[in-house]
Design a binder for these strands. Sequence first.
RNA 1: GUGCCCGUAGCUCAACUGGAUAGAGCAACGGCCUUCUAAGCCGUAGGUUACAGGUUCGAGUCCUGUCGGGCGCGCCA
Length: 580
Amino acid sequence: MKDQLHSLFTQAIDALKTDQVIPADHEVSIQFERTRQKEHGDFATNLAMTLAKPARRNPRELAELLIAALPADDLVTKVEIAGPGFINLFLAQDARYAVLNTVFEKGNQYGLGVPNSKQKIMVEFVSANPTGPLHVGHGRGAAYGDALARVLSAAGNTVEREYYVNDAGRQMDILAVSVWLRYLQANEVDIDLPENGYQGDYVAEMGQDLLASHGNQYIVDKAVIEGARADLELEEALDATIELAKTKLGNDGFEIFFKRALDSILDDIRQDLGEFSVDYDTWFSERSLFTDGKITKAIDKLKASGDVYEKGGAWWFKTTDYGDEKDRVVIRDNGQPTYFASDIAYHADKLDRGFDLAINVWGSDHHGYIPRVKASLEALGLDKEKLKVVLVQFAVLYRDGAKIPMSTRSGKFVTLRELRDEVGSDAARFFYAQRKSEQHMDFDLDLAKSQSKDNPMYYVQYAHARICRIFKTAEERGIDTSAIANADFSVLGSDQENALLTLLQKFPELLQAAAANYEPHQVTYYLKDLATALQAYYASTKILESEEPQRGAMLALCAATRQTLKNGLNVIGVGAPESM
RNA sequence: GUGCCCGUAGCUCAACUGGAUAGAGCAACGGCCUUCUAAGCCGUAGGUUACAGGUUCGAGUCCUGUCGGGCGCGCCA
């Protein structure tokens, strides 16, 4: 639709350039927008106002010239100049209901771009440390990341979803040693789990499981453990316990606790996300970067280019050369690479895999980390513009009007699974998807749980179910609906019918805009608008009791609306039930 | 201290990348079920877009400053 208008105005501008009204070398960008009020027509353009300066004419005068130069076309039935120089365009009724043919022709592909016709994009999201179950904060990242992936895919991009598994580093060691201590407790060793270990019940369960499967072969005397951590501060004591475990159990023994913890938590996360309709193409292991030598390779390359230098026994990346506030350590003085070193190798690997764009969905607390990752890509000779980081603000949970404190370590948090059990996966996804990523979000659990019927998702699903009900009743009454796609649509034309037709027509543009801006929330607002228009239509029009040929056309309009609602719900990962 | 994000109706949030009279839901008030699902519809009320300047035909949107909130600023991940 906009393309056709664009073509018309391009011809008009060319004509005015020939007449030297507009300088021939002036580059014109034509923008159309959907009008907010129907008195302003269907589309409006501000072209005359943007061209006023180069043409040295006042906008309204220029608008008249543009309209005079506009070639004749069936699409537009009326053109008006309004306000300071807007050109308002009124569509012919034929152009309005033509969208129904398109919807029937494309079915569940309606609104979607040509598959795999655009960029190859990776979306990496959630990537929570595998040290415990996902909480509601991760839920927001999951809902946003997956909806973003779906929107990008719907717009015609080739999309892969990836979960970066932080299975290396101290946090995983702390988890493994926490499991070990719980295992010892299950073996009736009277040892305590320090407060900076992982406290969750799942850790105790793993300890008990390991007792069942491996018996008592990894028992170490209480006195030995307490001796190792005597007189040490909390964090040092924990590190000492880790070292002791590695020594006493051997690498293979420690690995049993480590693997058990990692596998069981990853399985849990995978299942949790699967039930949330989030499925990944790849689970990328941080450890694999060590075993494949990719970290060493990346750091060596940076050393060779002089971007990494040695100071005080550690190796530093000179990120200040790339606009960072200070240089960053990549190899500690004890020889261990930092998390940043992993990330340098990881992001280089991502771009090496040939993506046109890699999108990271990160919690907003990581924003300070962006400059150094971009710096590393630049230093490695990669295109840093191919990395896009979208920050998702944390959801602040409220219960009984009070903020709920969250801490993974203490095990006191509301899990994603708990939320899904309470409100359902669909409602949770819709609720999350409504917010744009950078907006702070208050998540009122009482509202989401106890008053779930107030969730707008039900409103949208209800519109879909209602249309399904109409067709079911039609069948019961023996009304033949098989030929509605060929009905005479020209009998449609009431305000409510036109409002629906306009919304249906807008859907493809909407998906493109949502994808271009990384804003899946636009889809939820669109769906609410479409559902509202349908509900109003439903309430005012007794479709099945109308006479032919109106009835057939009305049913066609309903069918097209149902299809579009379903396609839109699918884009945010929410189901479209046929009855409620 | 310094950097990033945010500030819109009583509450939760939109506003098509600078457009015309800033919109929804919830909460409040008043109507609508003998007819396709009332998880619905129709209506009323609610605003100095935190504040002060600036840019231009035009600002919630861009720039500067102030105030308020969140988050960073580790040889943690």
